[in-house]
């Protein structure tokens, strides 16, 4: 744990150094940092603000403006639900609603409090032939229904419980 934190921190310093602490590069810097931490933690953003000589509110503003920045850590399992045209026509919305209800999540609050699941909608995973498509981490599940999707979720929950 601590070694990981130290490695990440080293990376962070290198990124800032590489970009010469230039506030004009803020977006790029945040992108690279997100690759390291997988999201943008508050203390890291404050650190970045101080290094670049800008206010934390400004960094926060940029981080919340672009949708590809995540301000909260994502769950261990990221469920990507395709809402491209093909999937939408085949009722992907019903799957989304079923999953959200099951996990008590919504569009804004999309990561479960135990840090296991994150639900995201994406536009077209490029597998329209299999519509509707759900991706759980790297695994693709085609021709989904609300029931099948819930089964996958239950499987994971079971697995995680067994681990404990």
């Amino acid at each position: 744990m601590s070694t990981q934190a130290a490695l990440n921190f080293n990376n962070l310093c290198e990124i800032l150094e590489k970009h010469n602490n230039d506030p004009a590069k803020l977006i790029t810097i945040l992108q690279e940092i997100q690759e390291v931490y997988r999201y943008l933690p508050e203390d890291i953003m404050t650190f970045v603000a101080t290094s670049l000589g800008i206010s934390p509110a400004k960094v926060y503003g940029v981080a919340t403006f672009y949708s590809h920045f995540a301000l909260k850590p994502k769950g261990k399992y990221v469920i990507k639900l395709c809402d491209g045209t093909a999937c939408h026509v085949k009722k992907s919305t019903a799957i989304l609603e079923a999953l959200q209800t099951r996990l008590g999540l919504n569009e804004k609050n999309n990561t479960s409090s135990d840090g296991i699941f994150t639900i995201e909608t994406v536009s077209c995973l490029g597998a329209c032939g299999l519509a509707p498509v759900v991706m759980i981490n790297e695994e693709v599940h085609g021709a989904m229904t609300p029931e099948l999707a819930l089964k996958e979720i239950d499987k994971i929950i079971q697995q995680e419980e067994n681990k404990q």
Binding site: M45, S55, A57
Partner: peptide, 20 residues
Amino acid sequence: IGAIDFANRGKDAMVLPAFA
């Protein structure tokens, strides 16, 4: 100082202190 700045986008845009 820059204690407040624009955050979020579109219809959610507002003026906020850092990290809301």
